[in-house]
Design a protein around this nucleic acid. Structure first.
Length: 553
RNA sequence: GCGCCUGUAGCUCAGUGGAUAGAGCGCUGCCCUCCGGAGGCAGAGGCCGCAGGUUCGAAUCCUGCCGGGCGCGCCA
């Protein structure tokens, strides 16, 4: 039995290890049970605090009835878990329900407090240099509302993986070299001159603003106007992202990949040429991506001699390889999902491992006004900007709204509803729970809130725990698993769901269990420790989403 | 036509092999001498898109069909 106080093994992990060990013994193998038993929380009362399906998994292997195996597991677990376990009961088709003792709960709370800010961290065995490239919207206009999904997702993922011990950096790659940029320059110039916009030109009001802000917009060279427009728009994008709470490590310009002789792009193409992955056809240069799983080959140099965006992407890949990047996460919108095959094939052609490039597909954010679906077009100037959205409903509500849905579901953003209901966004429920805890703890002297006091409070008291106390502790000990799951599945929305459940569980506890002034004092100390732990884990969860955890609202 | 994603309560969404499927909003009815009522309790509300299959066990995995989103350019 492991009760060593300084060992911060997650309480659930301890239980899981014990079940695995017992399963191995029952199976008669040394150490390895050969199956992966699960530990889960039964939904119904009377089915224990946790249940394992180990016996059901072992039954086909051992050729015995599951309940018999479960009974033997129980015998093995008893000595392993010692006073952590009240009793183990065989139930249903062969589940083993574990009823844990209050001393287990007290130790579990203690370990949450002892872990502090690093609770749920340090689970990565071998960290990789991980790059998350996200948003990367071209600087041909302000960030639109949908970019808020990308920004929130990429940033939250970075925070989660960082918490788990990965070496993460955030990058924004922007195309400032292509035809769209030239078109932007032409549009600004046309606006400045009062002449007609070029075909397919940019029509937004911001183009007129740019025409005023850029000196000599009417008379200067188009390239000059374009590059000044890009610079101004990029500043605006950076300001919006900063306001949204997203800090990038690097903004990388496509133009720098074209610069020099030979350029990064030249060198990438040369390398592919040497590898025999390029061929010429119809006057263009093609990359044979079909050799690596793509459904068609892709042009890298147009018949006009101009490189495509994919060519620049190749140069960027080489650039990242040279910098020692080991894993790349590049969330893109659903309209770009075919690009995943291209880039992974390109990676393979460059001799890299395509599996180190992950491209989570973010489904669309549909804007609805009234009952109509608002079409978004940057070029036509018909869009809602991220800044507009932040003005309307604020950073926290926007982030939470964007993060509570799984990335592979489309989000319907009803602007009227969002404005009306922003006060009812679940994020406020969570923040309210946090503020309430902070308010409560303000009534407690500082010395009782110091870590040693809290930790001893967690183990103080000998009375029986109340069910809401146990339920809250159960929720708290799930946190490391949730972070792990959110990280490995690239699914920050798990944390949003968890934070809401935790806030609910705290609220139930708060209603049923008097904290300040509870007697005897050991009970008060225990509940102060429990409240402080709940407050910390709520703050940690919100922090992983980039949402603030205010002490007062 | 082909490829990717998706279909769970009136609405917005969690739940990627476990026992009688959950939350928020909305609806009905209650609860403030009490640590923050931005709260709580109770209730109504579900062929988990449909049909097969795998399994001791399926919302979850497989197949087909139906509905929705997005792609299928020497555009980005």
């Amino acid at each position: 039995m492991s009760t060593a106080p300084s060992q911060a093994v997650a309480p659930l992990q301890e239980l899981r290890d014990a079940v695995r060990a017992a399963a191995a013994v029952v199976r008669g193998s040394d150490g390895e049970p050969g199956v992966e038993p699960k530990l889960e929380r039964p939904k119904r009362a009377g089915q224990g605090d946790y249940a394992t399906n180990a016996a059901l998994l072992l039954a086909p292997v051992l050729g015995e009835a599951p309940p018999r195996i479960a009974a033997r597991l129980a015998e093995e677990l008893q000595p392993q878990l010692g006073d952590s376990l009240d009793r183990a009961e065989v139930a249903g088709p062969g589940f083993l329900n574990l009823v844990l003792s209050d001393s287990w709960y007290r130790r579990a709370l203690r370990s949450v407090l002892a872990a502090g800010e690093r609770y749920g961290a340090d689970q990565v065995v071998s960290p990789e240099r991980t790059l998350i490239e996200f948003v990367s919207a071209n600087p041909t206009g302000p960030l639109v509302a949908a970019s808020g999904r990308h920004a929130a997702y990429g940033d939250a993922l970075a925070r989660i993986l960082g918490h788990l011990g990965q070496d993460v950096s955030r990058e924004y790659y922007f195309n400032d070299a292509g035809s769209q940029v030239r078109l932007l320059g032409e549009s600004v110039q046309a606006r400045a001159r009062g002449t007609e916009l070029p075909a397919g030109g940019y029509q937004g009001d911001y183009v007129a603003t740019l025409a005023e802000e850029i000196p000599d917009a009417d008379s200067g060279a188009v390239e000059q106007v374009a590059s000044q427009a890009v610079a101004l728009l990029l500043e605006k994008i950076k300001a919006t992202l900063a306001r949204y709470g997203v800090q990038y490590d690097l903004f990388l310009s496509e133009r720098t990949l074209h610069a020099g002789s030979p350029s990064a792009l030249d060198r990438a193409l040369e390398e592919l040429e040497r590898g025999g992955h390029l061929y010429r056809s119809e006057g263009a240069v093609w990359l044979r991506t079909t050799a690596f799983g793509d459904d068609k080959d892709r042009v890298v140099v147009r018949s006009t001699g101009e490189p495509t965006y994919l060519a620049a992407d190749l140069a960027y890949l080489v650039n990242k390889r040279d910098r020692g990047v080991q894993r790349q996460l590049i969330p893109v919108g659903a309209d770009h999902h075919a690009w995943m095959r291209e880039i992974r094939a390109a990676m393979a052609a460059l001799g890299g491992d395509p599996d180190t490039i992950e491209v989570p597909i973010l489904q669309f954010v549909h804007l609805i006004e009234g009952s109509e679906r608002a079409a978004m077009s940057k070029r036509r100037g018909a869009f809602v900007t991220l800044d507009d959205l932040l003005d309307e409903i604020g950073v926290d509500a926007t982030r939470f709204f964007m993060l509570r849905s799984s990335h592979d579901r489309t989000i319907d953003l009803d602007l009227d509803l969002a404005r009306r209901e922003s006060a009812e966004n679940p994020v406020y429920y969570i923040q309210y729970a946090h503020a309430r805890i902070a308010s409560m703890l303000r009534r407690v002297p500082d010395e009782r809130l110091a870590d040693p006091a809290l930790i001893s409070g967690a183990e103080s008291g000998s009375g029986e725990l109340h069910q809401p106390e146990r339920a809250l502790i159960q929720k708290l000990v799930e946190f490391p698993d949730e972070v792990q799951e959110a990280g490995s599945r690239r699914a920050p929305h798990r944390i949003a769901a968890y934070a809401l459940e935790l806030a609910q569980q705290f609220t139930t506890f708060y209603r049923d269990c008097r904290v300040i002034g509870a007697s005897p004092e050991s009970v008060e100390s225990f509940r102060i420790a429990l409240s402080a732990a709940a407050g910390r884990v709520i703050a940690l969860s919100l922090g992983l989403l980039g949402v603030s955890a205010p002490d007062m609202m």
